[in-house]
Nucleic acid binder design. Sequence first.
DNA 1: GTCTATAGTCAGATAGAC
DNA 2: GTCTATCTGACTATAGAC
Lengths: 196, 196
Amino acid sequence: MRQVETPRPPEENNRRMTLVRAAAVLFRDQGYERTTVRDLGNAVGMQSGSLFYHFRTKEEILVAVMALGITSTTEQLALALAAAPTLRDKLAALFRVHLNSLLGDNQAALEVMLYEWRSVSEAAKPGLVVLRDRYEALWQQVLEEAAAAGMVKQDTGLLRRTLLGSLHWTVQWYRRDGDLAVDALAERMLRLVLIE
Amino acid sequence: MRQVETPRPPEENNRRMTLVRAAAVLFRDQGYERTTVRDLGNAVGMQSGSLFYHFRTKEEILVAVMALGITSTTEQLALALAAAPTLRDKLAALFRVHLNSLLGDNQAALEVMLYEWRSVSEAAKPGLVVLRDRYEALWQQVLEEAAAAGMVKQDTGLLRRTLLGSLHWTVQWYRRDGDLAVDALAERMLRLVLIE
DNA sequence: GTCTATAGTCAGATAGAC
DNA sequence: GTCTATCTGACTATAGAC
């Protein structure tokens, strides 16, 4: 049985990290395919050829962006859950952390993870799937506790998928310059799913 | 005030239509950017250069695919709503029509509409937005009736967005070879949102 | 309407100097 | 670690024959 290599976000190296953060914004705004290695080099003040000292291929950059997006969100959620005193607070944390990671300032990486999946090679997918599953396991655990307490409906597997779908889709319509703050949106979305 | 040109799906011309249907599948499976005009020509038994007799640019094909996806779904929904005897049946129709249009056989066009938005030029967006708004207006109307009847929560604007997000996201996880039929999934998703 | 041939551009990646 | 220079291939779109 082969061990699945889970890509780590490149926290250790500063130059790599700058590049990954810049790539996240470009990939989100223009899409991975439309972003050229020249664009990437430009964004960090580097010639396009120099990128390939840090990454072997353009796709390796994409995978690094995605790994960063999902792992940092997972970490934030784990912290928020540990700090939540009540089950209601835990539920609220699910929505709040996810939306802030998607819609907050300089938070492009998770969006890339969600919307550029098709450009990831088959070889790289398993590692990212492991990271995603860790994140969704946190959701599943809280939802099951909430269902047991009668706060949400019982079909928790499907509930998790529909809720995550609802949240992911916010990037398509949410406008940061509107009146609705991210935390307020999180609260309203939570209320839609709570059984009163 | 300039009239917004709404792109019509190319029902009138058979050769064009064949091309649009083939393009829908390719764009869904590989993405618009990764699909070349050679791929498109191949799929309909034509040289890549010949495509440009039917369409001026590759993007024009994308727009035609999207227009087809959203208009045919809107038509199906309008028919289903007109045939629904009760409000509960109307609600069910929203879910059933949308999921069948997304996940059913040979129904690639709506998925392209949802996931290739970034590749549409600014010039072509307004026409497609009009088509999308017509579709969402049908949803909004039914949801408001349902809210007035106490069947769903009152925050119908946000409810519409979250429900559509949930449905759109199904393409990322639904497996047609699994045990769950599309109509059964629609029913379960409806139950998650109904106030009992 | 469809073909062949190709123009014109730009992509990802490499090699070797510094 | 970054630069310059460049290779190689692929892309969309056009032109003109049939």
